[in-house]
Simulated scan of single mutants.
Amino acid sequence: MTGVPLKHQRISRILAQEIRAGSYPAGEPLPGEHALAQRFGVSRTTIRAALAELTEESLITTRTGKGSYVRFDARPPDDRLGWARPRAVHGAGTTVRTLAVRETRDGALAAELGLEKDVFVCVERTCELVTDATVVSYERSFLPPVPGIRELPAHGFGQDPPTELLRRAGLRPDHGEQRVSGRPVDTHEAELLRRAPGDWFLQTRRTSRAADGSFVEHVVSLLDPDHFELTLTFG
């Protein structure tokens, strides 16, 4: 009958609603094909067709031999908070770990950003899944050493979220740019990510500036492509 969804379409719509509602936290596996087939009273072939539709919608990713996993992109992130923080905010079952907060000099980065001074406060963080401690991102945030930020290496973040610290320091992002590429991780990065050197990761480089064009933040992130994807909208 025209207009009546097929079995696999009906199942994919139900699962999509459950994913968006948070019934299956991002990064965690869906029930297996056999369990889903029993739940909906259909064949595994029908379930595979439903999962294929969810994959096309970027709601899940299928790993050979490991089942189907909900993508982080199932919930829209707030890029103002970086990559790691929004997953925790949206209940994605992740833990953000601060590895280091230190003052550093980087002449090449200062030249790239058009800054006279090459001193930054660098914050290094990783984000890992609560379920199995898989590290899915490694992020380095470079901040100008203004009052309220330059004290961080000595005092740390405390209980304040990064956005609140930036706001109190007078660093209010208004615009910026982000570049996305892919590259193999080096030995040091592989150790932090608990991967093998040479494993391929997405890399984003995001620079934020205030309304007057002054520098606010530069963030370099390495993202596990099994859990992150680049989505572009147009039109």
Rank of each mutant, 00 (worst) to 15 (best):
R179G: 01
D212S: 00
R205M: 14
L232G: 05
H227Q: 13
E18K: 02
Q159K: 09
R168D: 10
Y138L: 12
L232V: 14
R125Q: 04
L232M: 06
E103W: 05
P86W: 01
L36E: 03
G91Q: 01
P147F: 12
S208P: 04
E103R: 09
P184N: 05
R75V: 15
D212L: 03
A100I: 10
G65R: 14
G91F: 02
F201H: 09
L81Q: 13
D78S: 03
F120A: 05
A50I: 12
L143P: 07
R39K: 11
A211V: 15
R194K: 09
R63D: 03
R140A: 14
T204P: 10
T46E: 02
A190F: 05
R44C: 11
T187C: 02
D199Q: 10
F142Y: 12
H188T: 13
P197Q: 00
Y138R: 06
D186W: 02
E56C: 05
S58I: 14
T98H: 08
P147L: 15
F157R: 02
T94W: 02
R195F: 04
R205E: 03
P147R: 13
E189G: 03
S221Y: 04
P184H: 03
I47D: 00
R85N: 04
T61H: 11
V220C: 07
I19N: 01
I149T: 11
R71S: 04
G148T: 14
A133D: 02
P144R: 14
L30P: 02
Y138D: 02
P5W: 07
T187W: 02
Y69P: 10
D224A: 05
R172L: 08
G176M: 03
H227S: 06
R172D: 06
A49W: 09
L192I: 01
H8F: 15
A211Q: 08
L202N: 09
A74K: 04
R71H: 06
Q17A: 15
E53N: 09
A190C: 05
L232A: 10
S141F: 05
S58W: 07
E217Q: 11
D199R: 06
P225I: 09
R167M: 10
S208T: 07
R63V: 09
V146S: 05
T98V: 14
G148I: 15
A16R: 01
I11A: 13
E139M: 01
R13I: 04
T187V: 02
Q178E: 13
I11L: 13
